[in-house]
Amino acid sequence: MKSRVARSTAAKSLPVFVFPEELNFIAKDQRTHKRLLTIYNPYNFEINFQVLCNTPERYAVTNPHGTVKAHCCVDIVIKHKCAHSGPYNTSSKFKVEAYHGDKLLGSKVVASHLKDETNLPEPTSESLEFTRFSISSEHPSISIARSSTATTTAGHSVGVLPVIVTVVCLVLLFLPLEEDVFTSFPPYIRVSVNMKILAAYILGIMTILFVKT
């Protein structure tokens, strides 16, 4: 089965799912100096990832590389080290690369903006030469591998509709792909990769909604 996965992934690149697709750091808002980036794995096999950046000296990233189990996700924290000193109104790029073994499956670019305050003109971009992060001893491994499920905080109420949407997204993520031949599920309840992409994206939005509730 693993050899079949390797052959199918070698034939074409697969989409990489991250949320959010853009990070905004506001110098005057201390709460925005750390951002959470979630890497999703909707596939039926384990993937490895690494996070690159074209301006790595400006950021501290917990666990810039690691593993995401099938149908799970990993949260990593990105801290802007120059939020107080600038340069302001500039843009950097992160690249999240996903691997199956030594084979590159695909990559996703995430824009990062540092602004002096909100509602300013579009930041200027830096060079697009990506560099690996070195793991700093002052930032312990705090990324959390968790199943792609959404929970609510005790004592807070969440509407029925978001819960229903979350359940539907989870069902779609756990259903087999259309081209998966190693499954007993009938074809009419298999889903496409595009449907899983949409479900993972909506699930990320729902997760943030539940966290803020």
Rank of each mutant, 00 (worst) to 15 (best):
E117T: 09
E117P: 04
T118Q: 15
T118D: 15
N119K: 10
N119C: 14
N119F: 11
L120A: 15
P121E: 09
P121C: 08
P121S: 11
P121F: 14
E122L: 13
E122A: 12
E122W: 13
P123W: 06
P123N: 06
P123Q: 10
P123I: 10
P123R: 06
P123G: 03
T124D: 06
T124I: 15
T124N: 05
T124Q: 14
T124G: 10
S125K: 14
S125T: 12
E126V: 10
E126Y: 12
E126N: 12
E126M: 03
S127D: 13
S127T: 11
S127A: 10
S127N: 12
L128D: 15
L128M: 05
L128A: 12
E129M: 12
E129D: 14
E129G: 06
F130K: 10
F130W: 00
F130T: 07
F130S: 02
F130D: 03
T131C: 11
T131W: 13
T131A: 08
T131K: 15
T131H: 13
R132L: 11
F133I: 09
F133Y: 06
F133H: 04
F133A: 10
S134A: 11
S134N: 13
S134V: 05
S134F: 08
S134Y: 09
S134W: 02
I135D: 01
I135H: 00
S136V: 04
S136H: 10
S136P: 01
S136T: 00
S137D: 14
E138P: 00
E138H: 12
E138W: 01
H139W: 03
H139G: 01
H139L: 11
H139R: 13
P140N: 09
P140T: 01
P140G: 06
P140M: 01
S141D: 07
I142Y: 00
I142L: 03
I142H: 01
S143C: 02
S143N: 07
S143D: 04
S143T: 01
S143L: 00
I144P: 00
I144M: 01
I144Q: 01
I144Y: 02
I144C: 01
I144F: 00
A145Y: 03
A145C: 02
A145E: 15
R146I: 05
R146Q: 10
R146N: 04
R146Y: 04
R146L: 06
S147T: 09
S147L: 09
S147D: 08
S148H: 05
S148W: 06
S148M: 13
S148E: 14
S148V: 06
S148I: 04
T149F: 07
T149K: 07
T149S: 11
T149V: 05
A150H: 03
A150E: 07
A150K: 04
A150W: 05
T151S: 08
T151Q: 10
T151Y: 13
T151V: 15
T151F: 11
